[in-house]
Simulated assay, not measured.
Amino acid sequence: MKMKKSDGGGGGANWMDTYGDMVTLLLCFFVLLYSMSTVDENKWKALVQSFNPDAIETPTDPKGNDGPNADPLLPNASSDTLSPEEIDAQAAQKEVDSAMEDLYQMLMQYIQDSGKNIEVTKGDGVVYVNFDDTVFFDGEEYVIKPAGEETLNVVCGVLDNAAPYIDEVRVLGHTAQANADRPNTPSVDRFLASNRATNTVIYIQEHTSVLDSARLVSEGYGQHRPIAPNDSEAGRARNRRVEMIISGKNMLDKLGDSIEQYHTLVKGEAQAPESSAPSSASQEESSTSHDAGLSNTEGQEG
């Protein structure tokens, strides 16, 4: 007797049971995630202390600048993550930054009160001063004019006030090109620029009582960094100038300031001199070289 074939009814929708179970599990999973994202702070503290009764609560900055996981290099890092030396360095750097800001404000106040044509700008730990060209030197001259001395007297007082926080004072000497189509004679041009910067540094050194003379640096650039065309008297007057770059100490630099870095560089090759004052013989030799270098300045600068 033959068996009847099944008509295929039933069992066709069994896959929906598996699908329904999967959707239910996903729903539970997302509900769990949501519940974890809104954990009550007090309940979470109770849970942590139940596992670790000795746990200590540490407030954490939401920006990541504080707390146990804060970056110790960030300025707002918790003092718990810094060594005593790093904490002292940060405090000292704040004093330096404040002193450099005061120096900048004092120079700006002098400009406003006196009406002097002086440009003062401020950078990261640096104050840049561009003195009025016509105030300091005449053409082919490196002797500071009385009006320039008057300005430097004020600058010297400002430098003395911030002296403990100053790393270096760099004075840059510049010249104008007498002929726009023909460069100056290199030897005369360089001597003139260097002597302008040197005379300015000498004046500052002689009229400051607190600023360390070792932090004064003079540099001569000659005609090679003009700020105006040399085809007019007004342009040449702007190029005939001195500039000053005053940099504050970087207390976070483990290599120290510029003087310490210099002696570190030459350590083992030369010993630091006990006194920076030159001998009378060296002063006489320097004076002779300046005079020789400028003996033929006629017609070299406009």
Score class of each variant (00 low, 15 high):
209 S>I: 09
176 A>D: 03
112 Q>N: 14
136 F>I: 03
125 G>Q: 09
215 R>A: 06
213 S>H: 11
129 V>M: 03
165 Y>I: 05
114 S>H: 01
191 F>K: 07
127 V>F: 09
203 Y>R: 02
153 N>D: 11
152 L>P: 07
178 A>K: 11
205 Q>K: 14
202 I>P: 03
122 K>F: 05
159 L>V: 06
206 E>L: 10
195 N>T: 14
116 K>D: 14
153 N>P: 07
152 L>M: 09
130 N>M: 11
162 A>K: 07
203 Y>K: 07
169 V>W: 01
124 D>N: 12
150 E>A: 08
106 M>E: 14
179 N>A: 08
112 Q>D: 12
134 T>K: 12
190 R>T: 15
221 Y>L: 13
120 V>F: 03
162 A>Y: 09
182 R>D: 05
178 A>Y: 10
176 A>W: 00
84 P>A: 07
90 Q>Y: 12
91 A>E: 06
206 E>N: 14
148 G>C: 03
124 D>P: 04
137 F>C: 01
114 S>K: 04
174 H>T: 01
138 D>P: 03
103 L>V: 12
147 A>L: 02
168 E>V: 15
129 V>T: 06
154 V>F: 08
86 E>D: 11
111 I>L: 02
130 N>A: 12
209 S>D: 06
163 A>M: 06
110 Y>N: 08
167 D>T: 10
125 G>R: 12
128 Y>G: 07
119 E>Q: 14
156 C>N: 14
121 T>I: 04
180 A>D: 04
181 D>V: 10
170 R>M: 14
147 A>F: 00
195 N>H: 13
212 D>V: 11
188 V>A: 12
170 R>K: 15
87 I>W: 01
199 N>G: 05
190 R>D: 09
156 C>V: 11
133 D>K: 00
95 E>R: 15
179 N>G: 02
164 P>S: 06
123 G>N: 11
172 L>N: 13
221 Y>Q: 06
163 A>R: 04
182 R>A: 12
133 D>W: 00
146 P>H: 02
188 V>M: 08
164 P>M: 07
106 M>W: 09
136 F>H: 04
100 M>A: 08
188 V>Q: 08
126 V>M: 07
174 H>R: 01
196 R>Y: 00
215 R>Y: 08
182 R>V: 14
154 V>T: 08
173 G>N: 09
124 D>Y: 11
103 L>G: 11
215 R>P: 02
152 L>F: 03
204 I>A: 02
186 P>I: 05
140 E>C: 07
184 N>Y: 02
124 D>M: 05
197 A>I: 14
154 V>L: 05
221 Y>H: 12
90 Q>V: 05
155 V>D: 00
120 V>D: 01
208 T>P: 00
217 V>P: 07
198 T>D: 10
91 A>K: 13
98 S>H: 13
178 A>V: 10
218 S>E: 05
190 R>I: 14
157 G>I: 10
